[in-house]
Design a protein around this nucleic acid. Structure first.
Lengths: 232, 232
DNA sequence: TGACCGAAAATAACTCCGATTATATGAGAA
DNA sequence: TTCTCATATAATCGGAGTTATTTTCGGTCA
């Protein structure tokens, strides 16, 4: 299983990350036209193709917009594809991380119960088995803290898989990236782990019994209490 | 105001669309390695740079994965960035459009009430005014059917703007693309328009009075009844 | 004299091209 | 079995020509 998602492979991706981070940090401001192609080539020391691919990446993520004669401009934050895990990792360096985490919880509180409900409704037996397997790995005493975190993340992802909704999957990739950051913080509040485990079990059993409402409610409880542990 | 979002500008984007559609249509199957660079160059009649930028676009949308010596492979559908409006438009040509529309309604039913609640909680006066303006344009008798649809879409988008949640915005761009397809169908069920208008008004007033629960409930009602009009 | 319209120039992104470099895989030998 | 090397393929490079859009300048009409 790969660590998280290293999409920083390749020179263009790294260049795109450098520029993207400078944008999220406010170093490059919205509306500003960044240097001309020729100037950036000299500054970065890469070839035109590499730079162009980097800019293409930023463009598909909604960060920039290139027009002839005008140059390449930084687009407003509302156009950014915040759900892209890579974009999220760029924003992870920004200073308003608490606000970002709170906004993420708002959307998780809305999405994860839905995923649990759909997983109960139309998840296959194989899907349910995968969820259970992740839970067992998580509950296993012997597993170390890192493996438990990995299993926790996998538990949530398997629920999204079981929901069989194509619009849910891209959201899950964000949640994966976010969980890998927030779970350790949650774990640190020791004693919370036992409670968290019981809440995970409640979700699992509701899904296996195809009790949609119970699954929805259990997921709501879990996210809400996780939210409280992180913000109070 | 721009028509919807013409991201088909540029030759690489068109090539990417051609290949992307072939993937969503199942012409190119998952796991399959598509032809070598050199062969595709000849088949498409474009330059290497153009093809590479097209493949880069597909890569950022999670459609393909390129590795030296192995070739470029089609990734599984669960990696696709379905929330990308462009990807949605590609899938619009696929055959299982009804299932896709149903999945979209599932997520809208979960997301839009949240957006309405947040808009009521922390939307500024300017945000609320923008929502009201969209509603008035929509209610105006004189406006033609096309303008009314445009206003309807704008109404929903303004709510997402007012919600001030960065993770909600990328979702809204999908809903915009989807609404432009589904609304005409809904409108066709004539008589529904009057009811729909009243439901929009209920959302607007709840938001303006900062009544979070009422806004949440009203949005739920609207989406649910829209769903029923489309699927029964 | 002032405002408006049209054509040309300037600028920057866009497209194309062929060569070179890096890397991963698989075959063959130790 | 393990290590090494050949090979196929994507990744990177740099340059030249093309296209599109804005700006500016010149002319015309009121």
């Amino acid at each position: 299983m790969k660590p998280i998602a290293r999409e920083d492979r390749g020179l263009p991706a790294r260049i795109a990350g450098d520029i993207g981070r400078r944008i999220t940090l406010g170093d490059l401001k919205v509306g500003e036209t960044l240097p001309r192609e020729a100037d950036m080539l000299a500054a970065l020391g890469v070839s035109r193709t590499t730079l162009r691919e980097a800019l293409k990446i930023l463009s598909t993520k909604g960060f920039i917009e290139a027009k002839p004669r005008l140059g390449t401009r930084v687009r407003a934050a509302e156009h950014w594809n915040t759900l892209d895990p890579v974009v999220l990792s760029w924003q992870g360096d920004a200073e308003d991380q608490d606000a970002l985490a709170e906004e993420l919880f708002e959307i998780r509180l809305s999405i994860e119960p839905l995923a649990a409900r759909l997983a109960a409704r139309r998840g296959s037996a194989a899907h349910h088995a995968a969820i259970r397997a992740a839970f067992l790995r998580m509950a296993e005493e012997q597993t170390g803290i890192d493996a438990a975190i990995e299993a926790d993340i996998d538990f949530h992802l398997q629920i999204f898989q079981a929901a069989r909704n194509r619009f849910l999957l891209p959201v899950s990739s964000v949640i994966r990236a976010a969980l890998s950051i927030s779970i350790p913080k949650t774990m640190a509040a020791s004693g919370g782990f036992g409670q968290s485990l019981a809440q995970h079990r409640a979700i699992l059993e509701a899904i296996e019994q195809r009790d949609e409402e119970a699954a929805f409610a259990a997921a709501t409880t879990l996210i809400a209490s996780t939210y409280k542990r992180n913000f109070s």
